[in-house]
């Protein structure tokens, strides 16, 4: 009944948890591949695409996207500066590619349906 709030041996448990967490973080290198590309025009999401399947498709009739090996990028656009195309392919979670003249943006996200974590 009368255990104090903190005891000396607690350190083992905290240390073990933190070591496991840090080692897994280092293992994955913090380099997280996203699973889904989100394309939005004027801030509205118009298409979400799974990056595990290679594909080439058109958005807005002028902009062509390519999905290859888990990466996605603009490959063709009718804009003048071509910043979006020169940006190349993106695959890491949180990366963004934008075509400003056409107001089209592409974001990499990871969708996890962890909604059942009961803890």
């Amino acid at each position: 009944m009368n255990r104090p709030l903190i005891k000396k041996h607690d350190i083992f448990i905290y240390a073990a948890s933190i070591i496991i967490a840090v080692s897994i973080y280092l293992l994955t290198g913090g380099n997280v591949k996203g699973t889904t590309g989100q394309i939005s025009i004027d801030g509205r999401i118009v298409k979400t695409i799974n990056l595990s399947q290679d594909a080439i498709f058109l958005i807005d009739e002028n902009i062509r996207f390519q999905v290859e090996n888990g990466a996605i990028g603009f490959i063709e656009s009718n804009c003048a500066d071509k910043v979006c195309v020169n940006g190349g392919m993106i695959s890491r979670q949180g990366q963004i590619a934008v075509c400003l003249p056409n107001r089209v943006s592409l974001t990499i996200v990871t969708e996890i349906e962890f909604d059942t974590i009961v803890y």
């Binding site: 709030l5 005891k7 041996h9 607690d10 448990i13 905290y14 948890s17």
Partner: peptide, 17 residues
């Protein structure tokens, strides 16, 4: 008897996750 409730709880929560 060597560990506190807090540590047991932390281990339990981590194991649960």
């Amino acid at each position: 008897e060597k560990i506190s409730y807090t540590a047991v709880s932390v281990a339990g929560a981590t194991a649960h996750n």
